[in-house]
Each structure stands twice: as structure tokens, then as C-alpha cells.
């Protein structure tokens, strides 16, 4: 039986209340990020199981292609991995010496020695998000001590940072998202800038670079660590386009991300502890001294 009249508040009133509620939610979420815990609860208890199920077929394909490899294929892969390992080991030897030397020099300049960062391997879930936003879902969440704003890198460079968290999964915004920015410097000469995404998976914008700045096509862009969010010295991109339009204050500089933004399946979550203020100042002065010495 259908009731002749609807009970409770009228539909119009309910619509007004719900629209008001939605607007309040949007403001709270966008302006103050107050609703992270609410989003986290919904994500962990309601949405994550769905994501898990949707990801299952893809995970199964990966698992089966791994487990039904022939002996020969495994053998070949093992061989090539051993080769790679050997090569990596050789360059690592040099690196460890350089690292020691760097540490010694830094100590002489009474700067903060850099410590190794803790990392965790995460896998991307095969989940589509809003196609007009550059986001990915990772299979590690609060259970694995992931935190908001945590840097995400892959084997080649910086990918993005964690923006939402669930218990067992998290959402990362890629550096190519239009609302993402990351402080960087040019590896060759230390020129500082900020890299903005522009929504395309293979283009990044460097803004506020004056016309006469020393920047060339092919320059490697690395994180400067200035914002305190990303650890310094990770590669971000390579300059592919420079335009210096007359009459404008800044040059249009376009870079291509070095991370395999739309191909990587495995990524690394980095635990980065930004140095305290005092030490930060010391490090700053230290770096300045180095620059001064180099300049002379």
C-alpha cells in the first residue's frame, strides 16, 4: 500500500535542508579541510571494500601472469635482474663514498647532515577517479602509518602527494593536477622556481621565471625541499619548452615529468621529517656558504 500523503517534513523543505547541508559540507571541505576524518571513515568502511572488489580482476591477472611464467622466462628475468643489481651495486659504491664526503663537508660547514629517508612500497589500485582530476588510489593507508601530505615517488622521480586517507588505502594527487604545486630548483645551477600541474599527464609549468634566467632545454628540475613537504633533491622533470614572449614579465617554461606518471604500478611512499626551524636556518646558511664558495 502506498500512503496517500507523505509523512515527515515536506519534500521541498527536505531539499532545502539537504542543499544547505551540501553547501556547508563543500565549504568546510574546501576551505578548512575539516572533513578529513569523515571522508576517511566513509572511505575505509564503505568505499574501500568496493574498490577492493573492482580491483580484484586486475590483481588476479597480474597474479596469474606472475605465477604461470615459464622456467625460461623466470630464468631470463632473474639473470637480467642480477645484472642490474651488479650495476646498481657498482654505482652505489661510488655513491656511498660521495655521501660520506658530502656529510663530512656539511659537517665542516656545520650544516645539518642529511639522513636516509624511510620508504614503503605501495601499489596503485586499478580504480578510476574523476577524469578531470589527476589522482590515483594507493593500497596503503592509515594502518601503514601513511600521513596526509606524504610525498609519493616512483623509480624515476616525484609523482605527487597523499591528499585523502582511508584505513587501508589512500588517494594521492599527482604533480600534474592543476591544483598541485611543488617548490623546485634547476639541478645545473640551483635556480629556484615552483612547478604547477596543468591537467595533462605529460606537461608541467614552471612559473615566475624571469626572461633572463639561466635555463635551457634539457635541464633537470629537482625538488628544493623548501616547502618542507617534499624531501630535497628528487628529480621532478626535464625542461622541454621555453618561450619568452615579449611584453610579459615571466617566461613560459614547460617541463615533462620524469616519473612515469601514467605507467607506474608500484610507487614509494617517503617519510620525510622536515628539519626543525633552528636547524633549518643553519642548513640555509650552510647552503649559502656553499653557493658563495662555488660562486668565487
Amino acid at each position: 500500500m502506498q500512503p496517500l500523503f507523505m509523512r515527515g517534513p515536506s519534500v521541498t523543505l527536505r531539499v532545502i535542508i539537504l542543499v544547505g547541508l551540501s553547501v556547508a559540507l563543500m565549504i568546510a571541505d574546501h576551505r578548512w579541510n575539516h572533513l578529513e576524518s569523515m571522508r576517511e571513515a566513509i572511505e575505509s568502511y564503505l568505499i574501500y571494500p568496493l574498490r577492493y572488489v573492482v580491483n580484484l580482476p586486475v590483481a588476479f591477472v597480474h597474479w596469474s601472469s606472475d605465477s604461470f611464467l615459464s622456467h625460461q622466462e623466470l630464468f631470463d628475468e632473474n639473470q637480467s635482474l642480477k645484472d642490474q643489481q651488479l650495476r646498481a651495486q657498482v654505482s652505489l659504491q661510488k655513491l656511498s663514498i660521495l655521501e660520506k664526503e658530502n656529510e663530512r663537508l656539511r659537517r665542516m660547514l656545520s650544516a645539518q647532515p642529511k639522513v636516509g629517508e624511510r620508504v614503503l612500497i605501495a601499489e596503485l589500485l586499478s580504480i578510476d577517479m574523476d577524469p578531470y582530476k589527476q589522482q590515483v588510489v594507493l593500497n596503503k593507508g592509515e594502518q601503514h602509518e601513511v600521513y596526509l601530505g606524504q610525498p609519493v615517488i616512483d623509480a624515476w622521480g616525484v609523482m605527487g602527494q597523499v591528499v585523502h586517507m582511508g584505513g587501508f588505502s589512500s588517494t594521492a594527487m599527482l604533480i600534474t593536477d592543476p591544483s598541485h604545486a611543488i617548490p623546485v630548483q634547476v639541478n645545473r645551477n640551483g635556480l629556484r622556481s615552483t612547478v604547477f600541474g596543468n591537467g595533462q599527464p605529460d606537461r608541467l609549468e614552471l612559473r615566475y621565471i624571469p626572461h633572463n634566467a639561466d635555463i635551457e632545454i634539457g635541464d633537470l628540475i629537482i625538488t628544493s625541499g623548501l616547502g618542507g613537504r617534499f624531501p630535497p633533491n628528487y628529480p621532478v622533470g626535464r625542461i622541454i619548452e621555453i618561450e619568452r614572449p615579449a611584453g610579459e614579465t615571466f617566461a613560459n617554461v614547460i617541463a615533462q615529468p620524469v616519473a612515469h606518471i601514467d605507467r607506474s604500478r608500484e610507487v614509494l611512499l617517503v617519510w620525510h621529517n622536515p628539519p626543525q626551524n633552528e636547524q633549518n636556518e643553519k642548513a640555509e646558511t650552510g647552503e649559502k656558504t656553499v653557493e658563495a664558495i662555488v660562486g668565487e
Binding site: A24, L25, A28, D29, L35, E43, D130, Q135
Partner: peptide, 10 residues
Amino acid sequence: DVTLGSILGQ
């Protein structure tokens, strides 16, 4: 909204 990662309420 949570599924797509958009602003809550959109």
C-alpha cells in the same frame, strides 16, 4: 564524492 575524490557535497 568519496569514490571520485571530489569535494564532499559536490
